[in-house]
Design a protein around this nucleic acid. Structure first.
Lengths: 356, 356
DNA sequence: ATGAAAGCGCTAACAA
DNA sequence: TTGTTAGCGCTTTCAT
């Protein structure tokens, strides 16, 4: 690949001298700006190649663009977010823009720091996945740099948004469970203090859809919203408690796949199977399709969302002024983790029947 | 959190004016450099707060440090890498350094571009996970910026390394399988052209350890190294072919957990179970412990490796000159995916007995 | 302990 | 089409 790494040693000045032209000329060539003769272009290109010149992004940032777009991500350990990144990376692949990722430090909630860090580094645009940062803060931010938010249901005419129809997705899950015949359906969602919880956040929308669906099915008195810290182990523990209750639910709808895995684990811990308790998740992470897991879930099309976000950002950087708000339609994926509830009868819990 | 986002509008000049001091004074305060009276420090701090000043990283980068460390990662979709990131993030959490991640664009193999992008952005140090980039290129790089490589077995006195003892890890797996009584053990490893393959890379070391272990066990004639493109689906396909062979192996040792999941999938596809074919992986990603998967694997202590890498980098940035090469000891984790082979006998394959 | 001034590498007017 | 020049916001000697 590149003959050898450059670390700022050779400057535009050196290239200019080597090629016998002015610095401005070199500058124009590297940005392929208007008004350079093919001849000069060639000579400069040759000098650049020969010297292994790389423009300093810092210096560029002081005047113009850095050709960098930043994306802030809450947690990489949840496989849904890498999907977003894959999409964004793909969309940027042809462009002159380099993607850098700033992980939101879990110690310092909700991404403010990470987003600010990106802006401090003069990125030309920001993609962020922070459902709870203050809208006013975001608008102030977006006044200075193009911003695309992923997963926010609020509308702004300052920043763009790419969002999944979470109401629709959650309703698809509920319809599926109700159609199977379930009546005791619990919903597992993040505890307060976790990203995703808070009005307007995807998880909150899903909770509402769950409640509404239960209500509309005449099951208002069976609504059961269980809160758990994020992470599969935590959800497993909480689910274990839920399953130990005398009137345990016949189905659990988890707000996303990670906790759903925890619930599946708890089901196994309790010596139960999918025939006893159905489990549904949300996101369709890769492992959900594995026969050992086989989790019914909702495909959010994370990769498409990431790609779309990057595309919108490039448009903004290119000058678009009108805000855009793109809604991606989610899709239910039915697998073996959801089954009809056991037929009526008392001691059904005593015998667990295995099988995929 | 931060009252409102700043986007370069207020400069060090503004702060100096507000506080009635020189720019140099402000500069000293924000770096808490030597020679500032508490009085001035307080006044400046107040002005910074009032104006919401944020130093421009670009401008800083032109003279001194950017307080940014960059990490290059080959693929975020493999859950092992987020472990590394979690460790690095934790180690940096208290420091003034911000972590930015540059994903290696799969289109442009082996991370050269991503690493260069980081250097172009004047990061104060680089952590990279590219087993195959040319050592000379790296040494040239390391001459200009502190570098810590993860997973490289070669030694350099220019850059540091954090590496797992892959030979030992692979040997632990082989010892386990041999102890169980397996003799027909195949090894699944990345096809040429994939990161990880190439001399000195972790995967290559594991292949060698596999061969040696077979040889030493007197099973040299049963050595079977199968190559597959990366990714669970690809490995599943390849494994399906392997399992269809008349003399299919009784155990498959996959070079890491992702392909191991693919093999498990193939085992299920073929209507077989862990009693028919044992499967072992490498990395101990979180899902491996799930009862639906229950994969025997090797814990590389990825989080510790990430933390260590960040610590070494900070030391380098602080001035250490002597190279360091840290080896982390891996640990076998035995789960239900590995069992003793079926007792001798012909039509053993006809009946599949289920289990945990 | 504090400030003045030079300059890092680049881009963007403006002149030629 | 090409070159000249003036900064961008900061850090860093070097005086004071």
């Amino acid at each position: 690949m590149a003959s050898r790494p450059s670390a700022g040693s050779v400057t535009i000045e050196d290239v200019a001298r080597e090629a016998g032209v002015s610095r401005a000329a070199v500058s124009k060539v590297i940005r392929n700006a208007y008004g350079v003769s093919p001849a000069m272009k060639a000579r400069v290109a040759e000098a650049i190649e020969k010297l292994g010149y790389r423009p300093s992004v810092s210096a560029r940032g002081m005047r113009g663009a850095t050709f960098t777009v930043g994306i802030e991500i809450p947690e990489l350990s949840n496989p849904f977010f890498p999907k977003l990144l894959a999409g964004a990376t793909a969309a940027l692949s042809g462009s002159p823009y380099q993607l850098i990722i700033a992980p939101a430090d879990p110690e310092h909630g909700e991404g403010y720091r990470a987003i600010q860090a990106l802006v401090d580094r003069q990125v030309d645009g920001v993609i962020a996945v922070s459902p709870l940062v203050d809208p006013e803060w975001l608008e102030a931010l977006a006044a200075n740099v193009p911003v695309v938010m992923i997963g926010r249901h609020d509308r702004s005419d300052k920043y763009d948004a790419v969002v999944s129809d979470d109401e629709e997705g959650a309703r698809q899950v509920m319809r599926h469970l109700l159609d199977l015949g379930h009546r005791d359906i619990a919903h597992l969602t993040p505890a307060a203090g976790f990203a995703g919880i808070g009005s307007g956040a995807p998880q909150a929308i899903r909770v509402d859809a769950y409640r509404d669906a239960m209500q509309e099915a005449g099951l208002g008195d069976r609504i059961r919203v269980v809160r758990s810290p994020n992470g599969a182990p935590e959800s497993r523990r909480v689910a274990l408690g839920l399953l130990a209750e005398p009137d345990r639910p016949t189905a659990v709808f988890a707000s996303h796949d990670e906790p759903a895995l925890g619930v599946l684990h708890a089901v196994a811990d309790a010596g139960l199977t999918a025939a006893d308790v159905s489990v549904a998740g949300y996101d369709d992470i890769e492992i959900a399709a594995h026969p050992g897991i086989s989790l019914t879930t909702v495909d959010q099309h994370g990769e498409r969302m990431g790609r779309l976000a990057a595309e919108l950002l490039l448009e903004r950087i290119a000058g678009r002024a009108e805000p855009r708000h793109e809604v991606v339609r989610p899709e239910l994926v039915v697998r073996a983790s959801t089954r009809p509830p056991r037929p009526r009868g008392g001691a059904a819990r005593l015998r667990a029947v295995g099988g995929t």
